[in-house]
Write a protein that binds this DNA or RNA. Sequence first.
DNA 1: AATCGTAGTGTCAAATAGTGTCAAATGGTG
DNA 2: CACCATTTGACACTATTTGACACTACGATT
Lengths: 151, 151
Amino acid sequence: MVSNMNFSGQFNVSIDLKGRVSVPATFREELREVYQSESVVVTTFKGGLVAYPPSRWAEICANVEALPAGPVKEANRRNRIAPAQECLFNKQGRIQVPQSLRDYADLQKDAVVIGMFEKIEIWNQQTHAKISHESEALLEENAQGQADLGF
Amino acid sequence: MVSNMNFSGQFNVSIDLKGRVSVPATFREELREVYQSESVVVTTFKGGLVAYPPSRWAEICANVEALPAGPVKEANRRNRIAPAQECLFNKQGRIQVPQSLRDYADLQKDAVVIGMFEKIEIWNQQTHAKISHESEALLEENAQGQADLGF
DNA sequence: AATCGTAGTGTCAAATAGTGTCAAATGGTG
DNA sequence: CACCATTTGACACTATTTGACACTACGATT
């Protein structure tokens, strides 16, 4: 296994009638084994949601608190820290995502769960398709850059 | 064999009921002997998939992480790094390609596997026929260029 | 305080997806 | 043609994901 890939891979998952999101087994395993955690802290991010291992979340909170008082610190507290909620896995590996967060990310039936290094993103499927498509256009505009990176 | 050609050659392979792709023996041998690897990291690329030896993948990741923060770095992370998954060979030399990647490249039954120096491309057969045909047209448009190259 | 409705929890079991392996088919090589 | 390595299809098995439903907690309404 490539070291330090942390969370990676992309998965289409479904959300049940009551708003529970299935988290892929591989992420749960990584959480258990690397982060010793049976839960995840979920918050808002750019129109979607992100889930962090609790230990990672604590670091993020500390970083925000270390900011000098001012509107940036306030905004981080209001829009990232405040909406965050810890979610436990149930026996089937699903987490109950609170309604306010589901509303924010427009989660209903089909979602995409994506490993992103030390965090896990959760998107509405259409929203994700849109941003991914935009990213692809950007990459295609600059083929030389892609080649330089080794792709 | 011309030395240092790394992966080369083009192969029609089939994909089994469960989405496993046969990787030609010659590529597996190259991976084992040159890259000391029994796996490959697969990700999306221009409508098809690419597979890299894990050591090569680590370099690419490092290159992306070294980019200045900005939309290009973001796009690379989102569309190249995040969807990537490591795939191990089974006893028959097949790799299980995750569903999201199969969906992206529209892989069902027949695929084309192509050696490209340090990477291996995997295409839907029709998709590949189409881009190959377009490339051929481009070359024919420029016969002088072909001659200059020594072809 | 009793009733109702809504949201969330726990759990089961069906459906789906992935793994391991065997053996037949294929294709290249001498 | 005969041999050998490789590829392929198939099947049984295991793991994971999903839909469903009964149940609980809680807040609002009367």
